[in-house]
Design a binder for these strands. Structure first.
Lengths: 221, 221
DNA sequence: GTCTATAGATAGATAGAC
DNA sequence: GTCTATCTATCTATAGAC
């Protein structure tokens, strides 16, 4: 082995590059998500690990690269979760509604990820652009969506002229906005978009809207 | 008068509280929008005015209050623009489509405002919450939307169980996301949501979706 | 690989003269 | 109301011992 230390040493301090860097990524994810890129403090990240600030620079090089690594890990986890989308063998309408629900639930369950994405958008996706792991990765779910759309059109139930990427944008926008903009929306209009007793209502509403769009009678137009 | 200076002195330096504070707000709007709250530099804001940093503290008290003032002015301008929504005397379907188009156009025309709103959401709307000018102001447009919805339901063309605030959230989410998330979306999926040659397509798409939702045949469900 | 100590730059905020 | 000068704190990043 490359180290004289015992690799199986849970909780102990010592040399374990994988564990140390994972711990740094955990703390960094929380800190960046809490405070944004400029607001995040490297000292604070270090304080929340069992290692020191020096190690952050040793492993990642700097604050910028650390944020890129945080994004890479977060998107990778998301892509893995999306692999679970198995809706190809039901009818197209049910499949799309299931897709809407999965997207809705995922956004609701990961507000921290949504904050990271907001930060990255604020910085014009410069970290994704320089990341070989992320630039242009798209989503495996999109291929599934494309097949569902094709099946629905073939059977004549879907009439809308829309592709998988566009549909993904329409579905994501509501799911994302509901979480990302809940605070200004609530402060201005006095209504909490993430209130638990309204959750099922909004979820069904989005499903209804997407299905209505895809299946609308376009004979007259 | 409270000042010995000539108040009509365009471009000259000297005492003009209204002009000085407006100039500070202009510079602050740009700087906060560019760099976020934590990333914005008070020195940079001062450098972009004809006055000094000291005056920012004199007029506004601090960075936090300055950002609140920036938000207040931006939202006030938006509300004034919304007064121009005059769609009550057309049929409900045309009125809603017009509302969608106005919302779409407004978001596209004001990316700087969208960045400010994203910043404020990142800070959980704490500045709106403490602002007497902004907390709970809602939107005058919402009352108009409410009347359109009621008219449509009365005539039997609208079947959806949705109120004005919910409809506003659905429309805004796509318009907002298209601008706010264009960078990560583009970097991941290779498609620019704000590409000018796709603009009309997305605009019509959102209109189609909202109308399809509102007018869907719900006899079977 | 890990630590302590600190360099070097810069931030928000203010003192005090005029 | 406006200016110059500066305080105090803090930040990212690194040097250098072990």
């Amino acid at each position: 082995m490359s180290s004289a230390e015992d690799p199986a040493r849970p909780g102990g301090r010592g040399r374990d590059a994988a564990r140390t860097s994972a711990e740094i990524l955990d703390a960094a994810t929380r800190e960046f998500s809490r405070a944004g890129f400029a607001g995040a403090r490297v000292d604070e990240i270090a304080a929340r690990t069992r290692t020191t600030k020096r190690m952050i620079y040793y492993y990642f090089g700097g604050k910028e690269q650390l944020f890129t690594a945080v994004l890479e890990r977060a998107y990778t986890a998301l892509r893995q979760a999306e692999q679970g989308l198995d809706v190809e063998h039901t009818d197209p309408v049910a499949a799309i509604r299931r897709l809407v629900e999965l997207t809705f639930d995922h956004h609701e369950a990961h507000p921290e990820f949504i904050r990271l994405v907001s930060i990255e958008n604020f910085h014009e996706a410069e970290h994704i652009a320089v990341s070989r792991k992320l630039a242009g990765i798209g989503s495996p779910a999109l291929e599934v969506v494309g097949r569902i759309l094709a099946a629905g059109r073939e059977r004549g139930v879907f009439t809308a002229d829309v592709d998988a990427v566009e549909l993904h944008a329409m579905i994501s926008s509501f799911c994302f906005f509901r979480v990302s903009n809940r605070h200004t929306f609530g402060a201005l209009f006095g209504r909490d978009l993430v209130a638990s007793d309204q959750r099922d209502r909004y979820r069904a509403m989005l499903g209804d809207m997407v299905i209505a769009y895809l299946t609308a009678d376009r004979a007259a137009g």
